[in-house]
């Protein structure tokens, strides 16, 4: 995945069973963001893998004032890349479950 300057990691072990997963997002390279992002630190949240889209979460983060509107696409892409990896991994490790 392209380096967006925004890091998204699992905030918990993934057992492949839960429909939701805890993720943690933080800015590694603020220069890659268009808007001035506050020094937010790490933002942890729960993501419903089946029901939600990364764009929903990215927009909520902008609404909550963590990021500037102009960065919503970068935030959404960063989350999307991590979610895709989680789903790819789940299908490989627990094929029977998926």
């Amino acid at each position: 995945a392209e380096d967006t300057g925004v890091r998204v990691e699992l905030a918990e072990e993934d057992d492949g069973r839960k429909s939701s997963i805890a993720l943690r997002l933080w800015v590694e390279d603020a220069k890659k963001l268009k808007g001035k992002s506050k020094d937010n630190g790490a933002i942890e949240f729960t993501f419903e893998l089946e029901k939600e889209t990364p764009d929903d979460v990215a927009q909520e983060m902008v609404d909550a004032g963590f990021f500037h509107e102009s960065d919503v696409k970068i935030i959404a892409k960063s989350i999307r890349d991590r979610v895709a990896l989680i789903q790819w991994r789940r299908e490989r490790i627990w094929p029977m479950l998926h």
Binding site: D29, G41, F45, M61
Partner: peptide, 27 residues
């Protein structure tokens, strides 16, 4: 503890904490 919680109007909770030093990329 230096955690703060922000709840979005749609109901999602965001827990904000300092990024561990080890995870910060050298600037």
């Amino acid at each position: 503890n230096s955690f703060t919680e922000v709840v979005h109007s749609a109901g999602r909770r965001f827990i904000v904490s300092p990024v561990p030093e080890s995870r910060l990329r050298e600037q």
